[in-house]
Design a protein around this nucleic acid. Structure first.
Lengths: 211, 211
DNA sequence: CCTAACTTACTTAGTGCTCGGTAAGTGAGT
DNA sequence: ACTCACTTACCGAGCACTAAGTAAGTTAGG
């Protein structure tokens, strides 16, 4: 009834059919993300994803070609979310970025699935010929570069002591956050991820400023 | 020909048959460790392990009951190695323990398989009903307790500043080492694990002493 | 000391199930 | 007329695991 249901007259190619297919793919990717996080890529059968999505297995493969294609689609989609966060961080003053870390942890805690997805997939991608390997290698290199650049510019502004190597410190920061997340995912009752990250942010501030 | 080939007279029950079986199990565990590290628990078929060990699949199951039994045997065996290292650390003066970290990293670098095994298995054990879950939960709790105790006693001796919470700091230290290891396993060319751990040990010393 | 009974470390053969993937349509949009 | 998002039907391979036997080593009894 409403205009939104119908394609507009003709000023834009509102391809209703393609749009519906795109939404369907998005839905499938979301479902696959959850399952991959819970059982890993190898532990998840296409049939599991298909059943939850209310589609047949060949229907699934029609959209993604094969199982690895589905994995790559999942990774790509989830990277968009992370990229959005990275952009958010880069938009801040360097001094404020540290303070954003606990907020990041808080957000991750509410969506444990996403965190689990990456932890599981990275571990399954350690071998060079794993389907997601190259992607995660590139991802970590980019992440380290972003953090290292942040440190470098903070050094130039005199906010951070000059004695440390930005690349090494970047790897260390990412490692700590990843590692805390893993411990929390394994044993949420024993590890308070938000408190741990808050504490680490303070440690890091002392470390970076040299006070 | 030599006496060693024959059972001794009778003062000890030198059960030749049992001993050979034990050695066989050890050999299988070693092979399974390698495969689990490379392809994960789920990604490894019993047939793969059996083939490399020169035994049939049912022969394998005769020793370990089922696949999960093999996994637990692998974890248990590898924990003995880690425990040996923990004991070594605990035998040192608290002040020397920090200096042992790079040596630990150096050792792990030479045997990347062991490191990879744990990274992969922990990720596969995040879900509470995974076969290794309880084991890794207990392992991390024990590890955190050991490190926290070390910090606590260093505080009592005045070697470490009083203002930090030992439990939280323990989780942070373990997280950093784990996270660095993961980055290195994923991309050995981009991450120098020994240099990174050396740098972190210095960071940590400043952090703990408050200088 | 010899041998019969038992235990143990396997093997061969096979089972039922699940897996990712394909071939060949169908029917509704465009 | 054509495309495209599917479905039904199917496939061969691989999976963990079992049943049943075998041969060698170990132990107990006479």
């Amino acid at each position: 009834m409403s205009r939104a249901d119908q394609p507009l007259h003709g000023d834009q190619p509102v391809t209703n059919r393609r749009e519906r297919a795109r939404l369907r793919r998005e839905e499938i990717i979301l479902i696959a993300s959850e399952l991959f996080a819970e059982r890993g890529y190898r532990g998840t059968a296409l049939a599991d994803v298909a059943a939850r999505a209310g589609i047949t297995e060949p229907g699934l493969l029609h959209h993604f070609g094969n199982k690895a294609g589905l994995l790559l689609a999942v990774i790509e989609r989830r990277d968009l979310d992370s990229e959005a966060f990275a952009m958010e961080l880069l938009g801040m003053e360097p001094a404020d970025r540290l303070r954003a870390l606990p907020e990041f942890a808080r957000r991750n805690r509410e969506r444990a699935g996403l965190a689990k997805l990456f932890t599981v997939l990275v571990a399954e991608s350690l071998e060079p010929d794993a389907p997601g390997h190259d992607h995660f290698v590139a991802r970590y290199r980019a992440l380290r570069a972003i953090v290292a650049d942040t440190i470098r510019s903070a050094q130039e502004e005199g906010l951070t002591r000059a004695g440390l190597d930005p690349e090494t410190k970047a790897a260390e920061i990412i490692a700590t956050l990843d590692g805390l997340q893993t411990q929390w995912l394994l044993d949420p009752e024993a590890v308070d991820i938000v408190a741990a990250v808050e504490s680490y942010a303070r440690t890091l501030e002392r470390d970076l400023t040299g006070t």
